[in-house]
């Protein structure tokens, strides 16, 4: 991936070559390139730390969302963070650590690549360069377009489209729970993204190219056509009046009296 990324910029008309030279720090991948990209990666954690701060500020301002996607109406709708969410997170972390431990101890090479055990050789490019798995969907999009500039634009567009998502999906209903059609399309999109990841790891030939194109088209269709149309025409299920309503209804069925033992929220 490292030599690949700067060369993507060469697709930009007129100034592309100069940008690549600037990024490389020379006319080929060299020590200067390594330095540049090392410092870039060193910078990233600080950017991430800044975004985390933004996230916490937003959380304190607006509170957290919930799976039902409706605003809290009063104290009966909320519970305190501790102990409810701390203990829930402990459980979630435990499950994650268990899966992580299995990967670390029993399949340490599952997400790696045998080529990583061959000493680097500046004079020889490995026979099959494949990006890391998390880049594969975007790599598939890049290769699906026969035109280099178009491919690069679509690849970055695949991420950029996420930033305008709030304006694409204007449905007043926030939770997919009450949007039956959206649910179907969500899972279609999920399958599409996995398919792109699979196709990105396959050689760009024959049926794989055709499938990549179909999957790429679907990726953008989902964001640019399906989401706006859905939010206009979908008939949603009725929303509960408050968060506590669906919860309490279940409680009522199982164990009356209603609301007994509910903790007053902060």
């Amino acid at each position: 991936m490292r030599p690949l990324l700067p060369t993507l910029f060469s697709a930009i008309p007129y100034v592309g070559e100069s940008i690549v030279t600037l990024l490389w720090g020379g006319f080929s991948v060299d020590n200067a390139t390594l330095n540049r990209f090392f410092s870039l990666h060193y910078l990233m954690p600080f950017i991430i730390a800044g975004v985390v701060v933004l996230h916490i500020v937003a959380l304190h301002r607006f509170g957290s969302n919930n799976p039902i996607g409706i605003d809290t109406k009063g104290p009966q709708d909320t519970i305190s963070f501790h102990p409810y969410y701390t203990i829930k997170d402990v459980f979630g972390i435990a499950v994650f650590l268990l899966l992580l431990a299995m990967v670390v101890f029993f399949f340490p090479n599952a997400m790696g690549h045998p080529d990583n055990y061959i000493p680097a050789n500046a004079m020889q490019t490995p026979a099959h360069i494949v990006p890391e798995w998390y880049f594969l969907p975007f790599y598939a999009i890049l290769r699906a377009v026969p035109d280099k500039l178009g491919g690069v634009l679509l690849m970055f567009g695949a991420i950029a489209v996420l930033f305008i998502l709030p304006w694409l999906d204007r449905s007043p209903v926030r939770s997919a729970r009450f949007r039956p059609l959206f649910r179907i399309f969500f899972w279609l999109f999920f399958v599409d993204a996995i398919a792109l990841g699979y196709l990105g790891g396959k050689p760009a030939e024959g049926i794989y190219v055709i499938l990549s194109r179909v999957a790429t088209a679907w990726y953008f269709l989902h964001f640019l056509a399906i989401l706006p149309l859905l939010s206009m025409f979908e008939t949603t299920k009725p929303l509960p009046k408050s968060i506590s309503e669906p919860v309490l209804k279940e409680t009522l069925k199982r164990a009356p009296p209603l609301g007994a033992g509910l903790e007053p929220a902060e």
């Binding site: 519970i79 102990p83 409810y84 203990i87 829930k88 402990v90 459980f91 435990a94 499950v95 650590l97 268990l98 431990a101 299995m102 670390v104 101890f105 029993f106 919860v247 279940e250 409680t251 033992g261 509910l262 903790e263």
Partner: peptide
């Protein structure tokens, strides 16, 4: 692999215990 078996066993117990604790804490909300 030896450490892995021990770690997975430990974390397995941890998952069960934390799940029971979660059930217990949330019992009065559900």
């Amino acid at each position: 692999k030896r450490i892995g078996v021990a770690a997975v066993f430990f974390l397995g117990v941890f998952v069960v215990v934390s799940y029971m604790a979660k059930r217990r804490v949330w019992a009065d909300v559900h």
